[in-house]
């Protein structure tokens, strides 16, 4: 299960070719690519900087992909996430999943993305005409994760912060 954090761009076609090479049992490949938009919450975005927590990022993505493997019969999965300065139209993230049949690959790919959005330690800082601002976490991302029967981490007093399944609470 390759996981890569990198500043460089990636080539979807080359990555998918590598992922399914020598895997004749694969009948389905699902790939999601996240890209930088030029607008967020009504404000023009000129560019962004992606920060992460080296070490924890890789570990959390391994747990996430492990969870997907435990839930669905997939052949392999690839996650590439870029960090550093990015601009509109740039690719940010690639999640690609291979499986025998399409259902598993579709579900596992969406699950990995939903999980990554709320659990992997990445943060976006946007440059806007009003200056730079940190992007706020979206409630809809927590809701997306909840669809899979996973309760997202929540702030606040008496906080029982959700941990990734398989971890000690």
């Amino acid at each position: 299960m390759p996981i890569r954090i990198q500043t460089e761009d990636f080539d979807l076609s080359a990555e998918v070719s590598r992922l399914r090479a020598s895997q004749p049992q694969v009948g389905a490949v699902v790939a999601f690519v996240g890209t930088v938009r030029d607008m967020n919450e009504g404000t023009i975005v000129a560019g962004m900087e992606l920060e992460h927590y080296p070490g924890m990022t890789e570990k959390s993505l391994e747990v996430i992909v492990g969870q997907a493997r435990a839930r669905w019969d997939i052949v392999d999965a690839l996650v590439i996430h870029r960090v550093g300065p990015l601009k509109p139209l740039d690719q940010i993230v690639l999640v690609a999943v291979t499986s025998k049949h399409r259902g598993e690959a579709f579900a596992a790919c969406e699950f990995i993305m939903d999980y990554l959005k709320t659990q992997a330690p990445f943060w976006k800082k946007e440059q806007t005409p009003e200056g730079a601002r940190w992007v706020d976490a979206r409630v809809t991302d927590d809701q997306a994760l909840a669809r899979w029967g996973v309760s997202p981490a929540r702030p606040g007093p008496g906080n029982t912060e959700a941990s990734l399944p398989g971890e000690e609470a």
Binding site: G34, F122, S163
Partner: peptide, 25 residues
């Protein structure tokens, strides 16, 4: 480097991190 609860025990030499809700992807 694992998500923690307020009740998670700390130990000698461990690494404790504080950060805002994540916004990657």
């Amino acid at each position: 480097q694992q998500m923690a609860n307020p009740g998670t025990l700390v130990s000698e030499g461990c690494e404790v991190a504080f950060f805002p809700p994540v916004t990657g992807g």
